[in-house]
């Protein structure tokens, strides 16, 4: 990737966030992205997850050049092969835990029964099978993040993109979330790219990639 930008709508115009970044994540690899705030970690995740298309260069996902894909195909990629986990969880407050985890199904075109079965599996995987009928506001921060992880892995993605997943958690909870990521990589062969300041989480990764002012160090 040669260039990627952020703050497109800012009064001063867009700002260069990534410059000459070349990164390959292998199948089943757990990669930690570290760097200061503003170093371009989130931009790299957004670009990799096809949410941000304002870049030059090439992004290949699962062997396909994403520059040739339209909105429908990119959305399908996000739905079927990529999972997102955010620092702020971004659960929908009016939906139950079960409904939140099932959210990707609404855009997948698959059967509801299959999605329900996957939801049960995903909740078991993150250790929350008993909280299916709870609402997000009834959960602790750690539980909310685990629900967000369950939503991200519902469709058994090939790539999990996590932006500061332990940023809002205490150390003990962060450790349990870290174990979940390790488990996902080990059991499902899912590649995980996680942007973090959390050294414990970064230490558990197979590889640490450092970003400094938008460049790989």
């Amino acid at each position: 990737m040669t260039r990627a930008y952020v703050d497109r709508d800012a009064p001063g115009g867009r700002r260069l966030a990534l410059d000459s970044v070349s990164l390959t994540v292998a199948h089943g690899e757990f990669v930690a992205l570290v760097g200061r705030s503003g170093s371009g970690k989130t931009t790299l995740l957004n670009v990799t997850g096809c949410l941000d298309r304002d870049f030059s260069g090439m992004l290949r996902l699962f062997g396909r050049d994403t520059s040739r894909l339209g909105d429908r195909q990119l959305s399908d990629l996000r739905n079927q092969r990529i999972g997102f986990v955010f620092q702020a969880f971004h659960l929908l407050g009016h939906l139950t835990v079960f409904q939140n985890v099932m959210l990707p199904w609404h855009f997948s075109g698959t059967s509801r029964a299959d999605a329900e079965s996957r939801t049960v599996d995903a909740l078991k995987q993150v250790g929350l099978p008993d909280r299916a009928d709870s609402f997000p506001w009834q959960l602790s921060a750690g539980e909310r993040q685990r629900v967000a992880i369950a939503r991200a892995i519902l469709n058994r993605p090939s790539l999990l993109l996590c932006d500061e997943p332990t940023g809002n958690l205490d150390r003990e909870t962060a450790a349990s979330v870290t174990r979940i990521f390790e488990q996902i990589v080990r059991q499902s062969g899912t590649s995980v790219l996680v942007a973090t300041h959390d050294e414990t989480l970064a230490a558990s990764a197979d590889r640490i990639v450092r970003l400094v002012d938008g460049r790989l160090a």
């Binding site: 997850g49 429908r72 959305s75 996000r78 997102f84 971004h90 929908l92 609404h106 939503r151």
Partner: peptide
């Protein structure tokens, strides 16, 4: 806006 952004993140198209 947040809800719509989450929809986009989990696979909603512009048309959706």
């Amino acid at each position: 806006r947040r809800e719509i952004a989450v929809y986009r993140a989990v696979g909603a198209t512009l048309l959706d």
